[in-house]
């Protein structure tokens, strides 16, 4: 650290403000390499999925029996599957579903969990009732819930998101409730009451901002878990219906021809793995950044 600092100092002093920003960025990358690597991988994957119509070389659902199970080549970088569909195109398009599911599940679990957790943290009666409901929700296995939901309704992205959000909510609620219980006893909350701050402003100004840091970290882990969860469901055939490609369904279809064409499973598996890895790296890094500030307060 000391060595790199002495090297970068004269450079930073002699450069214009724009370069100063660059130097700050370089220092951030050096200090938090896991966030930098995670963000880089995730950006690439998100960009691929977002630009799918532009960069996917083929129609992901176009069947071409003449080109069945072709190994990776210049024409098909990731090879083709049992129906002659281009695996690269299917992986790029499939990422859209996986990422959207990951993001929505994280947003909904944290949003709903935060609201319920705040109520449980402030009302003893609501707490007693809500926490028993949460215990019950935690006892439901997500996969079984999804299978039941698909059996009752039609398979859709909403069903998948719902099935993945339900088991996540109690985790967030417990986290928020625990934080609220300790925060509301803090002297700065008493101080706010003493200067005449109204209850809803205490919630917004004093309680919620102090729960944000751990929640962001939790949200990244939920996002990673939801992407995996969607893949499980698709693999088990209770996710989105067949023509739609998701990473899980591409892997599931590739399973049948695994002995002949390992690439059908390998590439979506790699994308899935790297996405989850990058989100976890960012989450770990954020926790490192946000935690010292928490401990410095004491």
């Amino acid at each position: 650290m000391a060595v790199t600092d002495t090297v970068s100092l004269p450079a930073a002093r002699s450069t214009a403000p724009t370069k100063g920003r660059l130097a700050r960025f370089a220092r951030f990358v050096r200090r938090h390499p896991n966030i930098a690597i995670g963000a880089l991988i995730l950006t690439l994957i998100v960009a691929c999925s977002a630009l799918a119509p532009l960069i996917a070389p083929y129609d992901p659902d176009a069947i071409n029996p003449a080109e069945r199970l072709k190994p990776p080549s210049a024409a098909h970088l990731f090879g083709t599957d049992a129906f002659g569909r281009d695996v690269l195109s299917r992986v790029i398009w499939g990422g859209r579903i996986s990422l959207v599911v990951g993001l929505t599940v994280a947003l909904f679990s944290v949003g709903i969990g935060l609201a319920i957790g705040l109520v449980a943290g402030f009302s003893r009666i609501a707490d007693a009732v809500l926490m028993r409901v949460m215990d019950a929700m935690m006892a439901i296995p997500g996969i079984l819930l999804a299978i039941a939901l698909v059996a009752l309704t039609t398979a859709s992205i909403e069903t998948v998101v719902f099935a993945l959000v339900i088991p996540e909510i109690p985790r967030v609620v417990r986290l928020v409730r625990a934080m609220v219980l300790s925060l509301r006893e803090q002297p700065f909350v008493d101080a706010a009451r003493a200067v005449g701050t109204r209850f809803h402003m205490i919630l917004i100004r004093h309680i919620m901002p102090n729960t944000v840091a751990p929640l962001i970290v939790q949200a990244t882990f939920i996002c990673a878990f939801a992407i995996l969860g969607e893949a499980y469901l698709s693999f088990l055939g209770v996710g989105l219906p067949p023509p739609t490609s998701t990473w899980g369904s591409v892997i599931a279809e590739g399973r049948k021809v695994f002995g002949l064409a390992v690439w059908v499973v390998l590439f979506p598996g790699l994308f899935l793995g790297f996405t989850v890895l990058s989100i976890n790296l960012i989450g770990d890094g954020l926790r490192d950044i946000l935690d010292p500030k928490l401990s410095r307060r004491q």
Binding site: P187, F188, G196, R205, H206, P209, N210, K293
Partner: peptide, 23 residues
């Protein structure tokens, strides 16, 4: 009571935990 609070204020023992760290 909220209006009466203008007449009586309090200073706390712990100068660390009595200030919201995010304000």
């Amino acid at each position: 009571m909220r209006h009466k609070r203008r007449d009586v204020q309090i200073i706390f023992q712990d100068p660390y935990s009595s200030l919201n760290p995010r304000m």
